[in-house]
């Protein structure tokens, strides 16, 4: 990895160039895709006009379409992508397992059960309560996983195994609801289970943005502990990490990020798994980088949402399916190219 030696006064340090390059390129792409996506639709707006409208100009019609109709949706996609990717990076690092994602903390399964239960039991009338039910389900399931994994402290390995167990019980609940439901409700639940940002409005964006404004800095603040948690428990302790409180902080941050995202857009769980692995392979290093993951997560979900709206405009596919269709081939391609170069 290329390192840049930096001297500022009496301080000096080394900065890895690759993550910065990947981050800058990713950010530029994200902005470009977001602007294009806002302009794209049944009423097209040129990218230049989109930018000027966002900066306060534009005609009344452009303001209505850009600010009230399309911006909330794009912002939801950006925020959800960033939140899930960071949550995944945190989970994969502390579990020391590339297969781990917020699913193993019970978040996505719990949210699914909450949402599907409300859809199936409440019928069409209860559709407004779905995000809240999802949030509640996510937090309850995550708390259950943590409590059940506690035995004189929480160990990453045990937490993951307990998470799988709890996830299975909860998933069985979801299947049970789906099998006994009317086919109309089962179909509606399937749509939610695939994740979608369609129909997002400002009322949904505000709490999500507020939550992320707190949680993303928190996640970055755990960076040092994360670095140490990669090693086994004894080494981490010797490096001066208070294992239990550090782990609780990381788990709480990851759970809260994932829960916020899932409540807003349904389980787009694949983002949380794939983006940290893509970021790791693009940047090199020993663990998924947090900031680059956030940027790439936002890019993936925004691009998938754009694809969802353009491929079949008449029958919009849920964005959760498109993230898999876009993200999986890219990871596979990276795997065949960088085989064996990274280990985590």
């Amino acid at each position: 990895m290329t390192l840049l030696q930096v001297h500022v006064g009496r301080l000096s340090g080394r900065v890895a160039l690759r993550p910065i390059a990947v981050g800058v390129v990713g950010l530029a792409l994200t902005v470009a895709v977001a602007v294009f996506s806002i302009g794209h639709g049944s009423f097209g707006i040129a990218p230049g006009n989109v930018v000027s409208t966002l900066l306060g100009g534009g005609t009344a019609a452009q303001k209505l379409i850009v600010l009230d109709l399309r911006l909330p949706r794009i912002l939801t996609a950006l925020l959800v992508g960033a939140a899930l990717a960071v949550s995944g990076a945190l989970t994969q690092t502390f579990a020391r397992n590339p297969l781990a994602s917020p699913d193993v903390l019970g978040v996505t399964h719990g949210a699914s059960l909450g949402a599907v239960a409300v859809i199936v039991l409440g019928g069409g009338a209860a559709i407004g309560a779905v995000p809240l039910a999802a949030l509640a389900g996510a937090l309850v399931a995550a708390a259950l996983v943590y409590v059940l994994a506690w035995r004189r402290g929480v160990d990453g390995y045990r937490l993951v195994l307990v998470g799988i167990g709890v996830g299975e019980v909860v998933t069985a609940g979801v299947s049970w609801f789906l099998v006994r439901a009317e086919i109309v409700d089962a179909a509606r639940a399937t749509i939610w289970l695939n994740g979608s940002v369609a129909g997002a409005d400002w009322a949904q964006v505000r709490p999500l943005a507020l939550g992320l404004a707190v949680l993303l800095p928190l996640a970055v603040a755990t960076s040092f502990t994360l670095q140490a948690l990669q090693f086994d428990d004894d080494v981490s302790k010797a490096l001066g990490v208070r294992l239990q409180s550090a782990r609780l902080a990381v788990v709480l941050t990851a759970v809260a990020l994932a829960a916020a995202a899932v409540a807003a857009a349904g389980p787009i769980e694949f983002v949380a798994f794939v983006v940290p692995q893509i970021a790791l392979r693009l940047c090199g290093g020993s663990r998924p980088p947090l900031v680059v993951s956030a940027i790439l997560g936002a890019l993936l979900v925004t691009a998938a949402d754009l694809a969802a709206r353009s491929v079949l405009p008449a029958r919009e596919l849920p964005v959760g399916l498109l993230t898999a269709m876009v993200g999986a081939p890219y990871l596979l391609w990276l795997l065949t190219r960088t085989n064996r170069r990274t280990s985590a």
Partner: peptide, 21 residues
Amino acid sequence: ALAGLAISALLASFTQSILLA
């Protein structure tokens, strides 16, 4: 493991898009 998960997710997304329709 990673290739397996990625292929599974890809196929599942195809399955779901058929089922949704």
